[in-house]
Nucleic acid binder design. Structure first.
Lengths: 154, 154
DNA sequence: TATAGGATTGACGTAAACGTAAAAGGTGCA
DNA sequence: TGCACCTTTTACGTTTACGTCAATCCTATA
């Protein structure tokens, strides 16, 4: 048994939510709540994106970590790399106007938007091309009784 | 100097196109003609997708190789993996109706088309989400004179 | 006390398609 | 002869975001 001073986060065993108002979560709860794996959470931490407190060796995630995780997941959803996300989050200063952070985010967002639009164009191309060849292949299949040898592979 | 029998492909030095009717190409010509790197051609060969002849150790690509390369590039364009492409090409039988090959191609194409459509949906989502947050960020930037602290990162 | 559930760190594995040296050999041309 | 150019094989490196053990530890509960 370990001594814990009154203000400290009390070791909270297993899956039981913490009784304190500090809504600290352990890694399992976090993972479930946000639909990620434990590995993912540790990975994000390893990459400097999260910084949970520790109770001994056990990670305890605060509101702050949850907000950051939400941002990470949003970033990934729109296609940012973790590095980009980190770069933007690292600029956050709770005591400032964060103009710099916002500008960086906007800048990166514009570029990412352009990438997404290009990707969509590529995919549309691919869809058209693929649909076309599918039609051709269907043709060949229905005509395969005839000995005509349209070349598909050389 | 190396002896070459009359019917054999004559060693064709440097970049000069071959004078025979066999239109054999060396790796450099192939690469330029199809906009790929030497490394790519060797890689495709290593993966069993191409099988150029050899003049000694020098690769000589035939019409057949060119046709196959075109197919590979088309496949990659529509998002097939090289493995998929190989699987489909391996089914080609110059002496048959290739019904099996065509069916496999069609089957894979349907699945790939579905993937592409799903991807497009995801990208559209991302675009919308990203556009939305960009609007929000712009808002915050124009309002940054006011001390209101909308939280962007926690 | 035995067992089931978490949790930890460490570290190799995966996927795809090449990129990038490195070291060497053949060829034509000036 | 020497340079420029093309080609060869071998093999490690790159990128991204985790997956998947492995070995260990801690705790509550039956």
């Amino acid at each position: 048994m370990k001594l814990v001073s009154p203000g400290e986060a009390v070791a909270n065993t297993n899956n039981v939510p913490l009784e304190t108002g500090e809504d600290l979560a352990r890694i399992g709860e976090m993972a479930k709540k946000y639909g990620v794996t434990l590995r993912t959470l540790r990975f994000y931490e390893d990459k400097g994106l999260l910084n949970p407190q520790r109770d001994g060796s056990t990670r305890l995630y605060t509101r702050r970590d949850k907000a950051r995780l939400k941002l990470i997941l949003l970033g990934r959803k729109v296609g940012f790399s973790l590095r980009d996300v980190k770069q933007m989050m690292d600029l956050y200063d709770p005591s400032g106007s964060n103009t710099k952070q916002l500008r960086l985010a906007l800048d990166k967002s514009e570029k990412q938007l352009a990438r997404l639009q290009k990707q969509r164009a590529l995919i549309d191309d691919a869809i058209n091309e693929l649909s076309g060849s599918m039609t051709a292949v269907r043709q060949m299949l229905t005509e395969r009784a005839a000995p005509s040898q349209a070349s598909v592979a050389g």
